[in-house]
Amino acid sequence: MVGLQEHGTSVVLQLNRPAKLNALSTGLEQALLDALHTPQVQAARAIVFTGSERAFSAGADTSELPEMTPDRIAAYYRGSGSVYDVVSRLPQPTIAAVSGYCLGAGFELALACDIRVAADTAQFGLPEVGLGILPSSGGLTRLVRAVGPALAREIILFGERFPASEAHRLGLVREVIPQARMLAVALERAAFLATQPAMAVAWTKAAIDAAAESSAASSLLIEQLAYAALNRTEGQKQ
């Protein structure tokens, strides 16, 4: 359900559930979790997440919703549903390479990545409210932090799909690329990030996340402590 390909010091993890447009079932989420713990991914210097030309992921597998009692939902977030937070906390730089549908949980997975590049075919959206639920795999929180509460309300409450060009205008994707070149460009970006000192990348990612949640004074202190920790480490240039 999840393909793994090595490209130099980067890896590509490909969602592979074509019959369901890569809908994120608990099984697919668990397969992605398992892939993240493989030696190849653990050793990688950058990770690219992608799907098919037709769909990065069309969202959660809604056929599982009727079975989700409160007890099962709590267990889900402790199990396969933790994959979104695991992705967001990876020490390596992560890139979502998005083609086609990127909806619901698929969009939440893309938002958990550090950088998003999109094919000109990509369509984004969070339709959960129309189903009587809400984005709950980190997408609501990450979208608010990315675009602010006012725009997040519009995107989530209306639940409308929007194209890659609009996602780029909102700052949700780094660049929009012709479909035929999208994965190659994502790999080029990953290859560059893979050359950066790994410890500096990991600490910088953590400091940025902390800055989003901290006071200015706390964030400045984190910067300074991280700098002190990185000084004279392997990879630090004099």
Rank of each mutant, 00 (worst) to 15 (best):
L36H: 08
Y76W: 15
V144M: 12
I208M: 08
Q40G: 03
V147S: 03
A191C: 05
G81H: 07
A58C: 10
L24K: 00
I115F: 13
P149N: 07
R174W: 13
A110P: 07
T69M: 06
I95W: 05
Q40N: 04
R17T: 10
I115K: 00
T62W: 14
C113H: 05
D85N: 06
A75S: 14
L221K: 13
G27M: 12
L221S: 11
A180W: 06
R78T: 11
A46W: 11
L109I: 10
A184R: 04
G125Q: 06
T9W: 08
A112F: 14
G79D: 12
A228L: 14
G51F: 06
V176L: 09
G79N: 06
P18L: 11
A152F: 14
V83D: 02
A229I: 09
L131C: 01
G132P: 09
I73N: 01
V48N: 01
G104P: 02
Y76V: 04
A186H: 03
I156A: 02
Y84V: 01
R174K: 11
M199D: 12
R116S: 04
A112P: 05
S214A: 15
G27D: 15
L193M: 13
A228Y: 14
K237Q: 12
G59M: 05
E6T: 15
M199Q: 15
G51C: 04
I47V: 15
Q236P: 00
Q5F: 06
P127H: 05
E166Q: 08
A96N: 06
V176C: 07
L225E: 14
A150Y: 12
A217W: 09
V98A: 00
A216R: 10
N231W: 13
N22V: 10
Q40P: 04
L172T: 01
M182L: 15
Q5M: 04
D209L: 13
G125D: 06
A229T: 14
G125F: 14
T141F: 13
G51V: 05
L28N: 03
R174P: 00
F124M: 05
F49Q: 00
V12Q: 00
V176R: 00
V48Q: 00
L221Y: 09
S10E: 07
F49T: 01
A191I: 09
I155T: 11
E67S: 14
G100N: 06
V176N: 02
R161K: 07
K205T: 11
A211P: 06
G79M: 07
A122E: 05
S57H: 08
G27V: 15
R145W: 07
P70R: 05
T204A: 08
Q92V: 14
T38L: 11
G27A: 11
L33Y: 03
P66Y: 09
Y76G: 00
Q92L: 08
Y84W: 10
S215K: 05
I133G: 03
A19M: 03
E154C: 02
N16L: 12
C113K: 00
S88C: 05
M68Y: 14
S215N: 04
R169I: 13
S52D: 13
I133E: 04
N22H: 08
D120I: 11
A194G: 02
L13P: 08
E166A: 02
S218K: 07
C102Q: 02
S80L: 04
T9D: 12
E234C: 04
P135F: 13
A229Q: 10
A190F: 14
C113V: 07
A190M: 08
A212D: 09
Q123M: 11
K205L: 13
A146Y: 10
F192S: 01
A110Q: 02
A146F: 10
